[in-house]
Simulated scan of single mutants.
Amino acid sequence: MFLPPGFGGSSSAADDEEKRLRTEYTRVEGLVKARIPDAMRSAAEVHVQEVQCGDPSCAPIDCAIIVMFDSGGRGQFGIPCESREVGEEELDEFCPPVDVFTEWYNGNSVEWSPFQDDEYDMNDEQALRFRVGTLVQCRVGADPVTGWANGHITELFYRENNWPPGQMAPYKVALDDGRNIFAPQDIPEVIRARPV
Rank of each mutant, 00 (worst) to 15 (best):
P144Y: 02
Q137I: 13
D99G: 04
W104T: 00
Y171I: 00
C95Q: 09
D176P: 04
P96W: 05
Q185N: 07
V190G: 03
T102L: 04
N106L: 08
G166H: 13
A127E: 14
E111G: 05
A169G: 12
D117R: 14
D62N: 11
Y158M: 05
E155N: 08
D92E: 13
D92A: 10
N180V: 14
G75D: 11
F77Y: 10
G178F: 09
R84H: 06
T102E: 12
I61Y: 07
W112H: 14
A149C: 12
Q137R: 15
R179C: 04
N106V: 01
L135D: 13
C95L: 09
D124F: 03
W112V: 11
E119M: 12
P96F: 07
G87H: 05
Q167T: 08
L91I: 09
D176M: 03
G178K: 04
C95R: 07
C138I: 15
K172M: 07
Q185C: 04
C81E: 12
D176L: 06
S113D: 13
Y158G: 05
V67G: 10
G151S: 13
P170M: 06
M68G: 08
R131E: 02
G75W: 10
F182V: 06
A149S: 15
A174H: 11
C138W: 05
P184C: 09
R131A: 03
N161G: 10
G147Y: 03
P60H: 05
H152I: 02
E103G: 00
T146N: 06
W148T: 06
F130P: 04
Q126S: 15
I181T: 08
H152V: 04
P114K: 14
Q185Y: 02
V98E: 14
P170V: 07
M68I: 09
D62G: 08
I65C: 01
N106K: 12
Q185A: 08
P97L: 05
Q185P: 03
S83K: 00
I65V: 14
F101E: 02
M168Q: 08
Q76S: 15
S109V: 12
C95I: 08
D176E: 14
